[in-house]
Design a protein around this nucleic acid. Sequence first.
DNA 1: TATTATTGATAGTTTTACTATCAATTTTGC
DNA 2: GCAAAATTGATAGTAAAACTATCAATAATA
Lengths: 224, 224
Amino acid sequence: MESLVSNIQIQVQDSLFVKDPQSSDLGKKIIKGSIELICELGFEQFTFKKLAVKISSTEASVYRYFESKNMVLLYLSNWYWSWLEYRIVFTITNLPSAEDQLLKAVHLLTEQVNEDGNFEHINEIKLHQIVVSESLKSYLSKDVDSKNEGGAFVPYKNLVERITQLILQINPQFKYPHMLISTVIEGAHLQRHFATHLPRLTDIIEGEDAVTEFYSQIVFKAIQ
Amino acid sequence: MESLVSNIQIQVQDSLFVKDPQSSDLGKKIIKGSIELICELGFEQFTFKKLAVKISSTEASVYRYFESKNMVLLYLSNWYWSWLEYRIVFTITNLPSAEDQLLKAVHLLTEQVNEDGNFEHINEIKLHQIVVSESLKSYLSKDVDSKNEGGAFVPYKNLVERITQLILQINPQFKYPHMLISTVIEGAHLQRHFATHLPRLTDIIEGEDAVTEFYSQIVFKAIQ
DNA sequence: TATTATTGATAGTTTTACTATCAATTTTGC
DNA sequence: GCAAAATTGATAGTAAAACTATCAATAATA
């Protein structure tokens, strides 16, 4: 997966930003700095003031790119979902059977990201950690409905829909494909979070990726 | 389930409050008001100032009971988990088989709460909604480790452990019981949240509790 | 009745989440 | 290469949140 994305760019809907952060140096520094700071401090402790100091800019300048830190989180999440969908499509396109495709997709949905370096201003490993620990907060906030109307969750829905179609190819009768996939995605994130912070809520097995193994089993048992 | 709890009280660990809110009228008003306000405004918009106005008290008085609004959320979550574990134990104790017990437990873990009235100061329906939409934020905050050391997640872990033991009774070889149960609990909450706000991420079926149905199937297929 | 605990009232601090203004600098169009 | 336009930085300011501190009034208790 190293060199395949060397000249593609992930586009994020323009309703999420005031000015496209991928269109300028400062914008890219805002993205890069946000990823590092949110990862380091957590979303609650992350502020535009701290970000501005980190990237040697000013609060006012950051506000010229993003309306609020919530929008930054949405931007980062959506970038991640688009990137993940791209990787899934790229990876499974030539696989022979729908089963193989689904298995591979579930792997990509649930595995730990440990590659970086395809995008200068985005550390994919840290971004994955942010999505694991912070992205749910966007859905769980009270303004989820207005954000949703503004299209804030489209990439996520697209991803879920794409895997849903794979499932329905295998078993057109299965009644809960969306539920299954969103359970797998969010469940895998939570389990990774629990593995680090609340191990008694999960089952960590030495030398094996229990999260991916578990959810792969769940998916195939569920749809049969 | 109506009258069985008429004179029991759910105890919450005293590390979560400064002064036990169940020990005074003001304390109970704080709990009652918090449940209503968090439900209405969402956790982010909920403040001690607004709460104080609502219950005709003062900010300073609220702080005499709780260190912060995060502690209130933890208190409410833990009250809920203890209450739920109590209901599960009470309900399944006399069921003949471990399978019946597990099935019933999964129902209680995943169903919508629609009874109220066992506790004067706690609206169980609204509390359930809070747990669905807000409780994850306690695990997902950066201070999860220090909270965990202080025992903030003990009731939740106990609940997961209890159902884990049920699963292991049925299949002692099953490798991922904790993962399965925490996936079911949090998954069910998320699906209920999605059903209201992001329906394209779930599968709502007219006249049927798809959430409970889905997770019951998942559990029994997974452990076989 | 004296003591203690509880609550209310008020005030104050620091930080966050913004908005506004203006000058300096860089980019772009011609 | 120069004028106009856009971008950024610097600074200042506001409103609300998240506390802490103090003191008086009231209620509980010994």
